[in-house]
């Protein structure tokens, strides 16, 4: 009866049991690259910096994708400064590149440099973040949809628990778009299941220490850990902190409480190998492919969506070992 209603309301749930799920909710990316002939392009890429492991893998992935296609990639590391990025984009323009990839460090202040690129008809693709400028000034944005990440997490959990689960939620930093959208996306799916409830939700500030402290208070406040069926953390680091809190309270993570989080950092795969976490959704760093495809489509005179959603897959413990080795 219950599974019937799940099937009726959310027909895509059936596909969720697959080992590595490609984002099933998402708009399927237009398969544009098939026509990628041996045309060699010169592309400029202005990166923010290398402040996190994720950003470093994004840079490496885009470089590798360019090499695979035989493109000439001009890379510039802005060391967290917008003025460096603007300088880099101007120099790409003066070199007459075929397209520019820009990971904007802040949202505002891009209008004039984007206009300069548009005047010379050089397409600019924003990667992993957006800007507050007229959408006509850039070709497209290639980035994850945080809402869909939240929804994917909720639907996996619904399938895993047959729609019956008391959830505690560790939110990201209050007000951050990742926290707001992941929470909303999760809640939107959960509300279809009368027996799934978020019983506690607090901010752990995206940090391990925050996740640990808040999880401790959740465990104390609930009194009995058996009342909690799953933990949904807006990022892996908070989940890893919460795992420590569970172990110290004598609760077995991943067994007594399902541990589900987002980002796909190396340590969460290690936790899955140790049977201490159940699932993570990768914040996709492989944005080079769709970004280059968009530039090619533009050159062919095709219309390109203003937001190409490039969500990552959901990983389960069975592939954790390979994934950890890949990321180390």
């Amino acid at each position: 009866m219950l599974s019937n209603s799940i099937g009726r309301n959310l027909p895509w749930l059936g596909t969720l049991k697959r080992k590595t799920l490609q984002t099933s909710l998402a708009v399927i990316l237009p398969v544009l690259s098939a026509s990628a002939m041996a045309e060699s392009l010169t592309i400029g890429f202005s990166q923010i910096g290398s402040e996190s492991g994720w950003r470093t893998s994004e840079t490496e992935s885009i470089k590798a994708e360019a090499e695979r296609r035989g493109y000439d990639l001009k890379f510039s590391d802005a060391q967290q400064k917008q003025e460096n990025q603007i300088k880099a984009v101007r120099s790409f323009i003066s070199q007459g590149v075929d397209g520019i990839l820009l990971a904007p460090v802040v949202e505002t202040g891009w209008d004039s440099v984007l206009k300069e690129a548009k005047r010379l008809d050089i397409p600019v693709v924003l990667v992993d973040r957006g800007v507050a400028a007229d959408p006509s000034l850039y070709l497209t944005k290639v980035a994850s949809d945080f809402k869909e990440e939240g929804s994917l997490a909720a639907s996996w959990l619904a399938a895993e628990t047959n729609g019956r689960c008391n959830i505690v939620e560790l939110q990201g930093t209050v007000g951050s778009s990742a926290a707001i959208d992941r929470k909303d996306g999760f809640a939107a799916v959960i509300e279809n299941f009368p027996n799934m409830n978020v019983i506690r939700s607090q901010s752990g500030d995206f940090t391990r220490a925050g996740g640990k402290e808040v999880m401790e208070s959740f465990l104390k406040a609930e009194g009995d850990a058996s009342n909690i069926c799953a933990l949904f953390a807006h990022n892996d680091d908070m989940a890893l902190g919460a795992v420590l809190a569970m172990k110290e309270a004598g609760v077995e993570p991943a067994k007594d409480i399902i541990v589900l989080s987002i980002d796909g950092v190396p340590d969460i795969f290690k936790a899955m190998m140790d049977h201490e976490a159940n699932a993570t959704i990768e914040l996709n760093p492989h944005l080079g492919g769709p970004a280059f495809d968009a530039i090619l489509a533009h050159r062919d005179g095709k219309e390109v969506d203003k937001w190409i959603k490039a969500n990552g897959p959901l990983y389960l413990p069975d592939t954790a070992e390979q994934e950890y080795a890949k990321r180390k």
């Binding site: 939110q171 209050v174 506690r200 607090q202 901010s203 208070s217 104390k220 406040a221």
Partner: peptide, 15 residues
Amino acid sequence: TTAILTSGLPAQYNL
């Protein structure tokens, strides 16, 4: 801090 975390107050009111 601990009281606010255990009270179930929505996160945006913490501070």
